[in-house]
Amino acid sequence: MNIPMDWIRALEGGALIGLSASLMLGLNGRVMGISGIVGGLLSPTAGDVAWRALFVAGIVGGGLIALATMPGAFSGGTASMGLVVLAGLLVGVGTRIGNGCTSGHGVCGISRFSPRSVAATLTFIGAGAVTVLLTGGGAS
């Protein structure tokens, strides 16, 4: 059987994501949800800023390593600037109202068999699929 390389890379990268979530939960007792961690920096409370800022710094640092060592790892798609801004606004509003994004609900919540996270994940994948259908995958 011929398994596409993309799938194997996806599994490997996914395992790394699972590892980082496990470190965060097992050692720091925190859910590794990006929207929540970043959102907490927007309304900072005492003693709750440093670890969030360091996590963000880690993502940027890891991103720089990827940029230097993995050609083609990043591409921004072909959506226009206006569409990207609208997308960002919707992602910001939606993750705040819905208490999470792909990492917090899709990885961490589902791993704990949280019904809320399962429902949220099915909903955002469904809404994303309908959006891509209606835009004709035009954003890609």
């Binding site: 919707l90 939606g94 819905g98 208490n99 955002f124 891509v132 954003a139």
Partner: peptide, 20 residues
């Protein structure tokens, strides 16, 4: 929860980016 997730999904589909 579901309305928020749906709004997020639309944004995700438009740009191809989620927060991470």
């Amino acid at each position: 929860l579901l309305i928020g997730a749906a709004i997020f999904g639309v944004g995700w589909g438009l740009g191809g980016f989620c927060p991470g």
